[in-house]
Amino acid sequence: MPPELRTSRLLLTPYTPADEEDFVALFQDERVSRWMGDGPQSEAEDRALFGRVFSKVYAQGLFDVWAVRRGSRVVGHAEIKRTDAVDGYELVYALVPDAHGRGLGTELAEALVGYGFRELGADTVHATVAAQNTASLALLTRIGFAHVRDIAEDDGSTTRVLTRTRIAGPPGSAGTEHGVGT
């Protein structure tokens, strides 16, 4: 199970079975799901995905996945996992649409990056973002990610790979973090 993470306004916790309806509602919202994985799925597929969080991801310790809470409300989803698509750790995040435009996405992405560097010992973290998802691309660029390459998808779309690298500092320091090429 992943540890709880706190930001100034968010709490990331492992999912509980009681979170199923919030998870399904998030993934069924096409404004969110169009940017996630293979895009919108059926409600039954999203419920099965939620079940796999417990039966596979948590049970086998595959990667870290959290419910993102603001107060008592689930407002999003977050992951950080090893992936061959970028040869390292990739962060994944989504927020309910009414949480957009408040800086919560930045706060969430920064928390995932920090976790990757501090807790997972990653020297780089990556994000893969649909080229049309300009809001996410702008957010990641603002927090130090740099575009490193494009992936041509089978459906003709383009996925951008962005990377943020931790640069070693002097002995005894925690180092600093920079986007590739910055």
Rank of each mutant, 00 (worst) to 15 (best):
M1Q: 05
R6Y: 09
S8E: 15
S8A: 12
R9W: 06
R9V: 02
R9A: 07
L10C: 00
L11R: 10
L12I: 05
L12V: 03
L12Q: 00
T16F: 11
D19Q: 09
D22R: 14
V24S: 06
L26I: 12
D29W: 15
E30S: 15
V32K: 15
W35E: 12
D38Q: 15
P40H: 15
Q41P: 08
Q41D: 14
S42A: 13
E43K: 15
E43A: 15
A44W: 09
E45M: 11
A48L: 12
A48F: 12
G51S: 13
G51H: 11
R52S: 13
R52G: 09
V53C: 01
F54R: 03
F54N: 06
V57S: 00
V57K: 00
V57L: 09
Y58H: 01
Q60E: 15
F63N: 08
D64P: 03
V68R: 01
V68M: 02
R69Y: 07
G71C: 06
S72H: 15
V75Y: 07
G76K: 07
H77Q: 13
A78F: 11
K81S: 13
A85F: 09
V86E: 02
V92Q: 04
V92D: 04
Y93K: 03
Y93R: 06
Y93I: 00
L95Q: 14
V96I: 15
A99T: 11
A99P: 10
A99W: 11
G101C: 12
R102Y: 13
G103C: 12
L104I: 08
G105C: 06
L108H: 01
L108F: 08
L108Q: 02
A109S: 09
E110F: 11
A111W: 04
V113Y: 02
V113F: 02
G114C: 14
Y115W: 10
G116E: 07
G116M: 06
F117Y: 10
R118Y: 14
E119P: 07
L120S: 05
A122F: 00
D123N: 12
V125G: 00
V125E: 00
H126M: 02
A127F: 02
V129G: 00
A130T: 04
A130S: 10
Q132I: 11
A135C: 08
L137E: 08
A138C: 09
A138P: 10
L139Y: 09
L140I: 12
T141C: 03
T141V: 08
T141H: 03
R142P: 05
I143E: 14
G144T: 11
F145E: 05
V148Y: 03
R149K: 07
R149G: 01
D150M: 07
A152R: 12
D154A: 10
D154V: 09
D155A: 09
D155V: 13
D155C: 11
T158P: 01
R160Y: 03
V161G: 00
L162N: 00
T163S: 09
R166W: 11
R166E: 08
A168Y: 05
P170D: 13
G172F: 07
G172V: 04
G172H: 06
E177D: 15
H178Y: 09
G181D: 05
T182D: 15
T182V: 14
